[in-house]
Amino acid sequence: MLTIKNLHATVEGKEILKGIDLEIKAGEVHAIMGPNGSGKSTLANILAGNSNYEVTEGEIIFEGKNLLEMEPDERAKEGIFLAFQYPIEIPGVSNATFLKTAINEKRKHLGLPELTPKEFLNLMKEKSKILGMDNDLLGRSVNVGFSGGEKKRNEIFQLLMLDPKLAILDETDSGLDIDALKIVSNGVNVFHNDKNAVIVVTHYQRLLDYIVPDYVHVLYKGKIIKSGGKELALLLEERGYDWIKPEEVELESN
């Protein structure tokens, strides 16, 4: 589904990603872990097409298409979804208007008819139930007056509504208490099936108790320095990142 080859990227002239290779297939869950400043969020934002990040080398192929040639909205319509680390507020725009527009733009792109208001309402009802969200959500402005936890929940609600092929969760667990964490994880598990894939960007192993990854990658100073199965996350939890870091010397001398 997604192939990343030798990806280099800069932010304001500073190189953050220094050669990432990653292969993700339908049905898989990949966790990307690593200390602060290692480039995790950069990778997530580049996949979504955030223009604050510049790709200087390498390629990204998504479903056989060159992702780097697509505008952010095209990528979204092709099936890439980013759950934001800091969801944005849009005052005066109701969740209903926002989501209905988003869904119908995507359906138009795929050659499908627009949802009728009734179909849309039913879909909202079904998906909001999974996340235990209030009914008044429809009329409220996007993320305005939401608590940190509510914003994260709203991201996963949008994920379920838009049903993308590739979901990228950028530190969705940060700022969530344990109950909210369970609800949000459950939402992701309801979404996930053998036709789509999930990238979980996180600091902590805790989230991976609920969203179980097939692969864990450790990102450090812009490179993936270790990959493994879900047991790698437990090892990191136990021992921290320091035990991998010495390899850095070896890497840089190569």
Partner: peptide, 11 residues
């Protein structure tokens, strides 16, 4: 804000 809406498929 524009990027957020873009990311949801809105031009």
């Amino acid at each position: 804000q524009i990027f957020y809406l873009n990311q949801r498929g809105i031009a």
